[in-house]
């Protein structure tokens, strides 16, 4: 088994986190790595906690689900409460700044960032919160470059929204670097 990086993206159904997982996995594959994306979801198409998991590796991936969570993202309190367990003590936690984290949380790095308000207030479109989040994660995942991620995002989003999504990525990068 080679180097394996395991992520879990969580939020409310309809926030586009499964799509975000797909985009990150595609970016990894386009850069010659191996990746696998799985999801779990309830009966709701909108609302309800949902999660997508992505494993990126330079070798074969056998077990398709997360075992050692290196990076956790949550956009809602509900999803954070439900899915944060299993974070590696050296792992990275990224949450929207509306979320209260467990007091006893042990993680390597914790980022509480205004992901949703950046999408709603700064970009005027709440729907791109997932793309802002992808921008954030791009800066935190060593094996992915901005070029690869941007390519994967633009291949997946509707044609008329390319500028908006590019702006969302840039805002995401900035959230980490500021």
């Amino acid at each position: 088994m080679g180097n394996q990086f395991e992520l879990r993206l969580s939020g409310s159904g309809g926030q586009g986190l499964i799509l975000a997982g797909i985009i990150l996995a595609e970016a990894a594959i386009n850069s010659g790595l191996n990746a696998i994306q799985t999801q779990s979801y309830g009966p709701e198409a909108r609302g309800g906690a949902s999660k997508a998991e992505v494993i990126i590796s330079d070798a074969e991936i056998d077990f398709p689900k997360v075992q050692d969570l290196n990076l956790f993202l949550a956009l809602t309190q509900d999803a954070c409460d439900k899915y944060i367990k299993g974070i590696n003590p050296n792992g990275i936690v990224v949450v929207d700044d509306s979320i209260t984290l467990p007091a006893d949380l042990k993680a390597g790095k914790i980022y509480s960032l205004p992901i949703i308000s950046t999408a709603t207030d700064k970009l005027g479109k709440g729907i791109v919160a997932n793309i802002v989040a992808i921008g954030v994660l791009t800066e935190l995942i060593d094996v992915l470059t901005r070029e690869q991620v941007e390519g994967a995002v633009l291949a997946r989003v509707p044609k008329g929204t390319i500028d908006l999504n590019r702006s969302a990525l840039i805002e995401g990068y900035a959230l980490v670097n500021n």
Binding site: I22, A25, I29, N34, A35, I36, Q37, T38, I61, P64
Partner: peptide
């Protein structure tokens, strides 16, 4: 279901 729904290379 895992095989049906997962995405991989």
């Amino acid at each position: 279901e895992v095989v049906g729904h997962m995405r991989e290379r």
